[in-house]
Amino acid sequence: QIFVKTLMGKTITLEVELSDTIDNVKAKIQDKEGIPPDQQRLIFAGKQLEDGRTLSDYNIQKESTLHLVL
């Protein structure tokens, strides 16, 4: 699992595989929060994550926290 922190300070827990693409992750956030993926920007280690890449491409591990910017 990974964590996604919103600017409102809310933390969302997502069940993911490290082979999941950023697209997949955004879809899971949409399922939980109702935010359309095209409005989501995910940040990790100061970098904006690109849709076609996977979590492992960015060296994101289990229990990592991503930041969601709208």
Rank of each mutant, 00 (worst) to 15 (best):
Q1V: 10
Q1K: 13
Q1N: 13
Q1Y: 14
Q1L: 12
I2W: 01
F3G: 02
F3Y: 10
F3K: 07
V4K: 00
V4P: 01
V4Y: 08
K5S: 13
K5L: 13
K5W: 11
T6Y: 05
T6S: 04
L7K: 15
M8I: 11
M8G: 14
M8C: 14
M8P: 15
K10T: 05
K10N: 05
K10V: 05
K10E: 10
K10Y: 04
K10Q: 01
T11E: 10
I12S: 03
I12M: 09
I12P: 00
T13D: 12
L14V: 07
E15C: 06
V16T: 06
E17H: 09
E17P: 09
E17V: 09
E17K: 04
E17Q: 11
E17L: 07
S19T: 10
S19H: 06
S19V: 03
D20M: 06
D20V: 10
I22F: 03
I22D: 00
D23C: 04
N24Q: 13
N24W: 03
V25S: 01
V25L: 02
K26A: 07
K28N: 09
K28Q: 06
K28G: 10
K28R: 10
Q30D: 05
Q30F: 06
D31V: 08
E33V: 02
G34L: 05
G34W: 02
I35L: 08
I35P: 07
P36E: 09
P37E: 06
P37N: 11
Q39K: 14
Q39I: 13
Q39M: 04
Q39L: 07
Q40V: 05
Q40T: 08
R41Y: 12
L42E: 01
I43W: 13
I43R: 13
F44L: 13
A45K: 05
A45Y: 09
G46K: 01
K47D: 15
K47T: 15
K47N: 15
K47S: 14
K47C: 15
Q48G: 11
L49K: 00
L49Q: 00
E50Y: 10
E50N: 12
D51W: 02
D51A: 09
D51K: 03
R53C: 03
T54K: 11
T54D: 08
T54I: 05
T54Y: 07
L55W: 04
S56I: 05
S56N: 08
S56F: 03
S56H: 02
Y58N: 14
Y58M: 13
I60Q: 04
I60P: 13
I60T: 07
Q61T: 12
Q61N: 10
Q61C: 10
Q61E: 12
E63A: 10
E63C: 05
S64N: 10
S64L: 08
S64T: 08
S64Q: 11
T65W: 13
L66V: 14
H67R: 05
H67T: 01
H67Y: 01
L70G: 15
L70S: 15
L70F: 09
